[in-house]
Design a protein around this nucleic acid. Structure first.
Lengths: 143, 143
DNA sequence: TTACGTGCAAACCCTTTGCCTTGTC
DNA sequence: GACAAGGCAAAGGGTTTGCACGTAA
């Protein structure tokens, strides 16, 4: 049902004719070891080598986005966040608490039939989707 | 089924104890006459009175967001965009073409049952959701 | 060896803020 | 007349870019 998870990043990089450099390598390591929405500054902070420049992180992330390895995880007040694409982690959606800002992942997704219907009815070929639920988390509701 | 569309903005403003001023009035007019995702700069450009300050537009938009009149419509490369909330326009979702960037609205939405299930299973109280489909529009697919 | 990628620093641009003036209620 | 709201301008903060050097392939 689900498409097979992609192999090593190295393979993908090679496929994309990208040079494997320490900055790119380490940016991928961060996302792989911490597969959640991350703002660029935090990716930078988690790099093994702290001398790597912020600009390089931006450039690497942009490159990975255009290769489909990363996707933007949408807006947060202080800058854009990114996460691994569905090819590299399980497809999921976000529950976003409007009070505390906490983001929780949920696995359930029944949109495939909807995507097919859209294609039939509008001719638009859906390749991916992004679904977020906003509301109040149990913790905030309790207090 | 759907909740009734809210009345005049004026009523809402009064209810929120907001003063009715030309900048706020005109910002609402822009969204009402052009109920789509708009970046702040474009809202500003569409104001009847061009002397209104950009900062005032930002302040008005923030105010309206906290009142639930506007919602952020998510990320675009050059800044945040906003649109009228479901209370003031029909609930809908976006079809976003990854090639030409065109955004189309679709009305279909069957997520209410999903929202209920989320609440039952996680305790998270969903108040609204945001669903976007990314892919290739018929026009781009044809060429 | 040859592009491609990086570091550095300045430039950019959207957004926010302080302060004084304006205008609504 | 009070106090919220706006105008203006400068500051802030994330992101991008030009350029010269370094390095993967």
């Amino acid at each position: 049902m689900d498409k097979p998870r992609r192999p090593l990043f190295a393979v993908t990089l090679a496929r994309g004719a990208l040079r494997q450099t320490p900055p790119r390598q380490q940016v991928l390591e961060v996302f792989a070891s911490h597969p959640e929405r991350l703002p660029v500054a935090e990716v930078h902070a988690r790099l093994r080598d702290p001398r790597i420049n912020l600009a390089s992180v931006y450039r690497a992330i942009h490159r990975f986005c255009s290769l489909g390895i990363l996707v933007t995880a949408g807006h947060v007040p202080a800058g854009q966040t990114y996460e691994l694409s569905d090819d590299y982690r399980a497809h999921h959606h976000h529950l976003i608490c409007e009070r505390c800002g906490t983001v929780t992942d949920i696995e359930e997704c029944r949109l495939k039939p909807v995507e097919r219907r859209i294609r039939r009815q509008t001719g638009f070929h859906v390749r991916r989707h992004d679904l977020r639920f906003y509301g109040v988390c149990p913790t905030c509701a309790a207090r």
